[in-house]
Write a protein that binds this DNA or RNA. Structure first.
Lengths: 148, 148
DNA sequence: TTTAATGCAAAAGATTTGCAACATG
DNA sequence: CATGTTGCAAATCTTTTGCATTAAA
C-alpha cells in the first residue's frame, strides 16, 4: 500500500530542504532511498529498501543504503521502529506493563498503570487483525544521560 | 536494580512447573539463564545474559544462552522487547502515530488517534527522565495470518 | 538407559569500514 | 575543482547450526 502522491511530494520537498540546509549533497542514491521509504506505509528494513531501490538504480550498493538510512535518521527525516541499533532484549516480567526507553543509552525501565492497561483503541485497529496485547512505549532521555 | 526475592522465587517456581509440564529438562544452564533474567529489571540482551551467567557457570556457552532464551520465549516464560527476531525497520512518517504489529509475519501498520496522542502517563515516569515521545504498540495477528 | 541438551567449532547473516574512483555543488 | 559520497571488498559483529559428548530423567 502506498502513500498518496501529494504527501510523498511534501516529504521529498522537506527532505531536499533539510539536505540543503545541512549542506549534504543530494545524490541520486539518497534521493531514491528517501523516496522509497517516503512512499510506502510498510516499514521496510535495509535489505528490502535496497532491493526496491535497486530496480530503479541498479548500481546502488547495500552499504550506501545503510549509510543513507542512518544519515536520514540523524537528520530527523525518519525514525526506526523499536529501539534502533540495538540487539533483541529479553523481559521476564509477565505482568502487564509499559516501557520507558532512553534514546541515548538504551536504559529501559518498566512502569505500571492500570489506566494505560485499559486504553481504548480506535475501531480502525480491529480491522487490522486480532489484538493480543497493547503497551505504551515512552522514548526520552534518562536521568543519567541528562546529567552528563 | 533487582527484583525482590519473593517475586524471583515465584518466577523460578513457575518456570520449573512449566518445564516439567512440557517435559523439558531442567538443566543447570536453563535454570541459571532463567534466574538471571528473572532477577533483574533491566532488559538484557543475549550477550549480557551470557556474561552474567558465566560468572556462576563458567563453562556455559553463548549458543546455549541463545537456544535457551528462544525456548523460554516459545514457552511463554519471557517476552522480547520490540518485534523480536527482526531487523531494524525504518519509518518516514513523522506525524504522531501508533503501530499495529503482527506477531506472526511482522506486518506493521500505522494508526492514528488523537486520544492516544494525549494519554496521561503516571508521575513515576517523569522521575525516570525527560519524555520525548509516547506511542502505543499493539501486538496481534493480522487478517492475512488469521486466514491461513 | 534413553534421549534431549550442551559445548565446540564452523557457518551463516547482518552491518560496518577503508579506500580508490566518482559525482555534486 | 574540491570535497563529500559511492561501490567494492574485506572486516566485524551477531546469531545459528551440525555433530560428538555429556547429563537429566
Amino acid at each position: 500500500m502506498n502513500i498518496d502522491t501529494r504527501e510523498v511530494e511534501e516529504r521529498m520537498a522537506h527532505f531536499e530542504s533539510v539536505c540543503r540546509r545541512e549542506e549534504i549533497k543530494l545524490t541520486h542514491q539518497r534521493i531514491e532511498v528517501f523516496r522509497e521509504i517516503a512512499q510506502t506505509v510498510d516499514h521496510p528494513d535495509a535489505e528490502q529498501i535496497f532491493q526496491r531501490v535497486r530496480k530503479r538504480l541498479p548500481t546502488v550498493s547495500l552499504d550506501t543504503v545503510y549509510r543513507t538510512l542512518w544519515l536520514l535518521n540523524d537528520l530527523g527525516l525518519l525514525t526506526t521502529m523499536g529501539s534502533s541499533r540495538e540487539r533483541t532484549r529479553f523481559d521476564a516480567n509477565l505482568d502487564s506493563h509499559h516501557h520507558f526507553i532512553c534514546a541515548k543509552c538504551g536504559y529501559t525501565r518498566d512502569f505500571y498503570s492500570t489506566e494505560l492497561d485499559h486504553i481504548q483503541l480506535p475501531d480502525s485497529v480491529d480491522s487490522l487483525g486480532e489484538i493480543e496485547a497493547t503497551h505504551v512505549e515512552v522514548r526520552g532521555v534518562c536521568r543519567q544521560c541528562i546529567d552528563t
